[in-house]
Design a protein around this nucleic acid. Structure first.
Lengths: 200, 200
DNA sequence: ACCTGAACACCGTTCAAGT
DNA sequence: ACCTGAACACCGTTCAAGT
């Protein structure tokens, strides 16, 4: 019963397995050797596909930003009638992501994430661009270098709330109330800056 | 040249040395064995004072919350004339802390921090209480269980901005502009809720 | 091209033994 | 009370060798 020599799609299997490990047991548990064990492959086989642990974590982080961006996009598509509804939908999608993927979110907003990997940086930037559109900055503005500071404040607030939820400093039953408070704080400013919330 | 048998104040030395290690080389570098080496003590001596690595990290985290709280308090004492000034002063103190202590801030807002340690939870709660006072919730409200959600939104925004700075997703030259944007977003709401911003 | 297995230098944690 | 040193079971990373 020796294992098959070629695993076939080891890279994809490594990513899938490490996502599971991360979700179940947290970041510390994601070790190359444990992954190799789970995939029944030698302990240095993973290093063919990820030069080191950091590269694997970068791949997970990139994927995390993509998942979060998609999830917010879906929420906006369903519920983005007015600007308050859009903000609320985005906040709820963000918090749901934080609850379902707490260790991944942690990885995304940690110095381990900002390790200079350009793909990761790009995926993060796309989340920020989506937020920029949500608060009404045009795509032209959003893809130029000089962006309004409002979107950073919005991203910061969403990320901050999600972080407080993930670190259990906000209890689940407080979430809705806090999101409503955020909506009412941001609504006046965001409305002002919204010129084109219809062509997302 | 054997080392002295009793180190004397090993616990304090461990905390001081691990703060330095954390600041210089990040969380991964903070290992009990490395600390022992630096303090010229056997590798299992630290375990007399911290039952395991997590307990040491909890102590660092608690100290981090105390430092941040004190730093915001100092900023408010100097610059807290009106509500906008108070918010701005707190935001700047927070961001300065993030820049000077990026790995520590990371530790404070990570699941490693919320490991159920009651001292750490208390120190975090004190930061939130200070923020509550800043946005005008009375101490009575602030020490009761049912708190207004505004302070969580304020903490989330401050923490979110600090996080984006620490993970280098906000560039240093953008900071002031972003803080001003946050001030103008929050000022109307915070003014409304402020009844007693004079007796801090 | 892709994987193996040994080797090296690290960890955290435990525990009998020393002083 | 406090510290030591050996032991155990983990890591990441490197590299000659196999297929």
């Amino acid at each position: 019963m020796s294992r098959p020599y070629h695993h076939g799609a080891l890279r994809d299997a490594l990513i899938a397995e490490s996502q599971a490990l991360l979700a179940e047991q947290g970041l510390e548990a994601v070790s190359l050797r444990e992954l190799a064990r789970r995939l029944d492959v030698s302990h240095s086989a993973p290093e063919r596909h990820f030069r080191n642990r950091q590269e694997l974590l970068d791949a997970l982080t990139t994927r995390g930003f993509e998942m979060l961006t998609e999830s917010i996009q879906r929420a906006l598509a369903e519920d983005g009638v007015d600007i308050e509804g859009r903000f609320r939908a985005a906040a709820k999608a963000y918090v749901s992501f934080a609850i379902a993927n707490a260790p991944l979110l942690e990885l995304m907003f940690t110095s381990k994430a900002s390790s200079g990997n350009p793909e990761t940086a790009g995926a993060a930037a796309r989340l920020f661009t989506l937020t920029a559109e949500m608060v009404g900055e045009s795509s032209a503005q959003a893809s130029s270098g000089a962006l309004g500071p409002l979107r950073y404040v919005v991203v910061a607030t969403l990320q901050g709330i999600a972080n407080l939820v993930a670190t259990e400093r906000i209890r689940p039953e407080q979430i809705d109330e806090i999101i409503e408070q955020a909506v009412s704080v941001f609504a006046p400013t965001v409305s002002l800056s919204t010129q084109r919330n219809d062509d997302l």
